[in-house]
Simulated assay, not measured.
Amino acid sequence: MPQVRSLFLSDIHLGTRACQAERLLDFLREHPADNVFLIGDIVDFWAMRRGIHWSPAQNTFVQKILRRARHGERVVVIPGNHDEALRDYVDAAFGDIELAAEHVHVLADGRRFLLIHGDEFDQVTRHHRWVALLGDLAYDWLVRCNLIVSWVRRKLGIAGYWSLAGYAKRKVKKALQFVLDFEESVIHAARQRGLDGVICGHIHCAALREVGGLVYGNCGDWVDSCSALVEHADGRLEVVHWAQPAPAMSSQEPEEESRCAS
């Protein structure tokens, strides 16, 4: 099994039917690590107010993370907007798990990266919460529709995974502009702190590329794209897409842009 130095995961959305916990467990089995960073929206308290769906696989994920922490892996949780209730407990440790508002991680090659969920750079989430909640409902509807689309594709024998929500985001010009504005904002925050890059989540759009001399990384999500960032033993970062039941990897160099919610 590949041994990596760090795993960066975000937007798992435990507690929802859309969470693809089975694929996440497959990914974790193949990626033992020294550090596990859970960068926001791990548990979806917003959706759980409307109804809770907690599958055995989601329960197994929690148990696996706790076990990894007990066995010596460093586990750091950085809350996002969907699990913002955890922000009341930042700088505390729950057993072997650390809770932080943000974190500066030093890669094996010495580069320093800001780890942050990123919702504080989303102007809609910050200033128009009702719009964010409405968008969350619409996104949840698209994900539910995608379950039907996936079933039809399987019955027709069409291979591969296709995301309706990802397709909608790629087709909406304003959504694409929002992604660009978001990326620019988080890179600016990292530059102001004198860091070498940033790793975030929030927008469900996995990416790894160089922007103005800094590296922008986004973990993606475990609802649509089933993606994560990993740090190898030499400090090299890679985007991993785990969209198929069978392991399937794709990597990008920092100067290249990976696909969004594919």
Rank of each mutant, 00 (worst) to 15 (best):
Q123F: 10
V124I: 15
V124C: 07
H127A: 12
H128V: 13
W130V: 03
V131D: 13
L133M: 13
L134Q: 15
G135D: 14
D136W: 12
D136M: 07
L137H: 15
L137D: 15
A138T: 12
A138E: 15
A138D: 15
W141H: 10
L142H: 11
V143E: 13
V143K: 09
V143N: 12
C145M: 10
L147G: 07
L147N: 08
V149H: 11
V149F: 05
S150F: 00
S150K: 09
R154G: 02
K155M: 11
K155R: 10
L156K: 12
G157L: 06
G157V: 03
I158Q: 08
A159P: 08
A159L: 13
Y161I: 00
W162S: 12
S163V: 10
S163G: 05
L164I: 03
L164W: 05
A165S: 12
G166H: 06
G166Q: 06
A168W: 01
A168K: 06
R170A: 11
K171L: 14
K171H: 15
V172M: 14
V172Y: 14
K173R: 13
K174C: 11
A175S: 14
Q177S: 15
Q177R: 14
F178T: 08
V179D: 11
V179K: 07
V179Y: 11
L180H: 12
D181C: 10
D181P: 10
E183Q: 14
E184F: 05
S185C: 08
H188V: 00
A190C: 10
A190L: 02
R191Y: 03
Q192C: 10
R193G: 07
R193Q: 15
R193K: 14
R193A: 13
R193H: 11
G194R: 11
G194I: 02
G194E: 09
D196N: 05
G197Y: 02
G197N: 08
V198D: 00
I199F: 01
C200P: 02
C200Y: 02
G201K: 08
H202G: 02
I203S: 06
C205N: 07
V211T: 03
G212I: 08
G212S: 09
G213I: 01
V215T: 03
Y216F: 15
G217L: 01
C219I: 05
C219V: 04
D221G: 09
W222H: 10
V223I: 14
V223N: 00
V223S: 02
V223P: 01
V223M: 05
V223R: 04
D224K: 08
S225R: 00
C226G: 07
C226W: 04
C226N: 15
S227C: 07
S227Q: 09
L229A: 00
V230G: 08
H232G: 10
A233Q: 11
A233T: 03
D234I: 03
D234K: 06
G235Q: 08
G235S: 04
R236C: 01
L237C: 05
L237V: 05
E238M: 09
E238R: 09
V239F: 01
V239N: 10
V240I: 13
H241E: 13
H241S: 12
A243M: 11
Q244P: 00
P245I: 04
